[in-house]
Amino acid sequence: MTTNSNPLLETQEVTIKFGGLTAVNNLSIEVNKGEIVALIGPNGAGKTTAFNIITGVYAPTKGKVIYDGKDITGLKPDQITRMGVARTFQNIRLFKKLSVWENIMIACHLRLQSNFAGAALRFPKYRAEEKRMREKVHRLIEEFGLSRYQDDQASSLPYGVQRRLEIARALATEPKLLLLDEPAAGMNPKETEELTHFIREIKDKYDLTVLLIEHHMDLVMEISQRIYVLDFGETIAKGTAEEVQNDPKVIEAYLGVEEGA
C-alpha cells in the first residue's frame, strides 16, 4: 500500500450531522496523484454525502478537506471545481433541456477570461476564446462518441449515453481529480466492462486522479488501487481489493445486502 507524504486529496476526520443523524463520521481518506481509489458501502452508508463534502455542497460539521496541499473546507462548489475537482452525480444532473453541445460548452465557462461586455460585443479576445472552447468541446464529443447526439436534448439520450455525457462534461472543466458517483449504475455487465476500460483510458489520457463510488464489485476490484469501505458513516475497512474482500467486517456489512448485478 502506497502512502505518499503529499496526497492530492485528503479528508481529515470529516464528520457531518443532519439533525440527529451522523451521515459521515470521522472519515479520513487519502488519494494520491494518479491513483484510482474506490469508496464502497451499502446503501445509505454516506458515500454520496462524502462526495458532497469534498465538492463543497455541504460544509462538514467537523474536520478538514485538503486538496493539493490547500485547505478547501467550506469553499463553495464552484471554487473547488475551479481548483481542479470535477464530479458526476449519482442521479444524473445534466442540463436536461439543453443540447449535448451546450452541456459541455457550459462546463468550459469557468475558464473564460473575457467579461460579459467583451463577450456580448464579441471582442477579438472573446472570439478567440470561444473558438478554443468550441474546438475543445468538439474533441470531447468525438472522443466520447457523442457526435451523432451533438444537437439532441440531453434528456432525450439513452441512459448510458447520459452517463457518458456527464463524464465528458466533468472533463471539460479541466480537472485534476475526478469524482464519479456510481458511473456504472443501471449498466449491464458488458457496458460495465466497457466503462471500466474507458475510465482507465481517460485517466491516462488526461492525467487524472480518480475517486469513485460504485456498487459493481467487478469494476471496483478491477480498477481501484485502494478501497475504503463505509457503513453507517463509519469507515469499517480500507486497503487493497484483496484485503477488503477478506475483511470479516466488510462481509458482515454486506451480508444480506444485494449487490447491483
Partner: peptide, 26 residues
C-alpha cells in the same frame, strides 16, 4: 448577443439546475 455567448449559456445552466451549474464551476 449576450444570451448566445458563454455568459448566456451559464445563465441557462443556472436556470436548468443550480447544483449542476455550481459543480461546473459557475
Amino acid at each position: 448577443l449576450l444570451i448566445n455567448s458563454s455568459y448566456g449559456r451559464a445563465f441557462k445552466a443556472i436556470r436548468e439546475d443550480e447544483i449542476a451549474a455550481e459543480a461546473m464551476g459557475i
